[in-house]
């Protein structure tokens, strides 16, 4: 009987380009910071990926992360780490200060906890282990348009959750670091 032996695959070094950007809250120009970050992503995307779509998603995600830093951060610096890999882009925003109140959901025994709900979406916190939640979003069934008055006017988390393949928030109690990690797969 003829047997076949699997030939070992030649080891292929994964492509991984990373860069850290320092965003000085309150003084840096958001537009110029955003431009630099998008240029880094564009320059390091491998060939044959849907670049226009990935750059659009990266742009709206970074815009919301940086806007969130301007609105809510109590620390002077916000760090944005971007890793462009063979099949994903991982964006991590880190600042230091008090945790989001949402972190109380991390230790819930429920599978998911609604954060906001209106006629457009329900946004969920999904417990992912110690001091970590993942965001999830479901589209609502459109009901009475009179309910427009109840639409939640805060779209930042929903934009990131819907644009991303994975969006996770982690609070490190020791370092007091708030870490938002957004993954785009391709």
């Amino acid at each position: 009987m003829e047997t076949t032996r699997k030939r070992p695959r030649p080891y292929k070094q994964p492509t991984l380009m990373t860069r850290q950007f320092e965003f000085i809250t309150g003084s840096d120009n958001l537009t110029s910071a955003l431009k630099q970050m998008l240029e880094f992503i564009n320059d390091n995307l491998v060939a044959n990926v849907p670049a226009i779509n990935l750059l659009f998603k990266s742009k709206i995600i970074l815009t919301e992360l940086l806007t969130n830093a301007l609105k809510h951060s109590f620390s002077r610096y916000t760090l944005v780490d971007i890793a462009v890999e063979d099949n994903s882009i991982v964006i991590t925003k880190t600042d230091h200060g008090m945790p989001l109140s949402l972190i109380s959901y991390a230790n819930s025994s429920e599978n998911r906890i609604p954060i906001t709900h209106d006629i457009l979406h329900t946004l969920y916190a999904i417990p992912e282990g110690k001091d970590t939640i993942r965001f999830g979003c479901e589209e609502s069934t459109m009901g009475d348009l009179d309910a427009v008055e109840k639409i939640v006017e805060h779209f930042g988390l929903i934009i990131i959750t819907k644009a991303a393949d994975k969006f996770v928030y982690h609070y490190n109690v020791q370092t007091k670091a708030n870490k938002f990690t957004v993954t785009l797969n391709f």
Binding site: V148, I158, I159
Partner: peptide, 8 residues
């Protein structure tokens, strides 16, 4: 479109 504001 992403956040469904075309519905309202």
């Amino acid at each position: 479109l992403l956040i469904r504001l075309d519905k309202v």
